[in-house]
């Protein structure tokens, strides 16, 4: 054993990483997913800058060229205001992806807090918190998000709050289950025997050992969050025009189907790409990080 560790000059972390990469590459679909996500993230960062018609993104119109079919000048065609659909889709990427990230992030933070408190303390705290999150789960998330968005008024931040409020119970249940399991580990008993405070046991010994399933769920949820953001945009209580957002673009284009199909199909394709990519990536990450759940 000692010899083996001395012969390999690479650190353990590098070794583990290269093994994880190998396992990830074994599945072609996860690589496809990672590529799609990389593509989407690229446009998240640079979509606004690279858009060929930045004046359209800013709200400018060109009514002389409205409803132009896809061509070299406008690969995705133009919409009812003569705006370049490619530019709008590209510029809409950061809005959708950032909103998706924010929703998953806020939902995870809330869910981890609730789940960790419930699982770690047990007893009536567990009962109260879990019954409450069960209650939240019974309400369809889109309806809840609509209600919250209607109460707070439309807007980017309100939309994120609205969706995240419907999002955290899934994380709370996941984290609670994992904490219950990790709490019984011998190293947790060892930490308590050393004299570690409950906070130290939770933050140093339990939570670091349950990050993998949470990361996997976050990645899988990214796609659904993007969809929900778009759905809220579609029904008109998400991001307001002229800020380009995939759901809003679809919603407007709906009226011009099927004659001017390009106004709806391309934003839809962008959404499909993002959601599908994050899902494949999540599956791949699960194989790497959470081998128990494999196949």
């Amino acid at each position: 054993m000692t010899d083996a560790t001395q012969v390999t000059r690479r650190s353990a972390r590098a070794e583990a990483l290269s093994r994880a990469l190998y396992r990830f590459r074994q599945s072609r679909l996860s690589v496809v997913g990672a590529t799609m996500v990389a593509f989407v993230l690229f446009f998240t960062l640079f979509g606004g800058i690279l858009a060929p018609y930045p004046e359209h993104v800013a709200g400018g119109v060109d009514t002389a060229h409205r409803f132009a079919a896809p061509s070299l000048a406008h690969p995705f065609g133009t919409n009812e205001l003569g705006q370049d659909v490619l530019s709008l889709v590209m510029a809409g990427t950061p809005v959708s992806v950032a909103a998706g990230f924010a929703v998953v992030f806020v939902g995870t933070v809330l869910g981890v807090i609730v789940g960790a408190l419930a699982g770690f303390n047990g007893g009536w705290i567990d009962d109260v918190l879990m019954r409450f999150s069960d209650l939240m789960l019974t309400i369809p998330s889109l309806i809840l998000a609509m209600a919250v968005a209607a109460a707070l008024g439309p807007g980017f931040v309100n939309m994120i709050i609205a969706i995240a409020l419907a999002w955290w119970p899934g994380y709370a249940r996941l984290v609670r289950g994992e904490v219950l399991q990790a709490r019984e580990e011998v190293y947790v008993a060892a930490a308590r025997a050393i004299g570690a405070s409950p906070a130290r046991v939770l933050f140093r010994h339990i939570l670091p050992n349950i990050v993998s399933p949470v990361i996997v769920k976050m990645s899988l949820d990214m796609g659904f969050a993007i969809l929900t953001v778009a759905a809220l945009g579609f029904i008109g209580i998400g991001v307001r025009p002229p800020t380009p957002e995939w759901g809003t673009l679809l919603s407007i284009a709906r009226g011009y189907m099927p004659d001017f199909w390009w106004t709806a199909v391309f934003p839809g394709m962008a959404m499909f790409l993002a959601v599908f990519g994050f899902n494949l990536l999540g599956d791949g990450l699960r194989d790497v990080l959470d081998p128990r759940a494999r196949r």
Partner: peptide, 8 residues
């Protein structure tokens, strides 16, 4: 094998 925290 069980009594050491694998993350530390």
């Amino acid at each position: 094998y069980a009594s050491l925290n694998p993350r530390m």
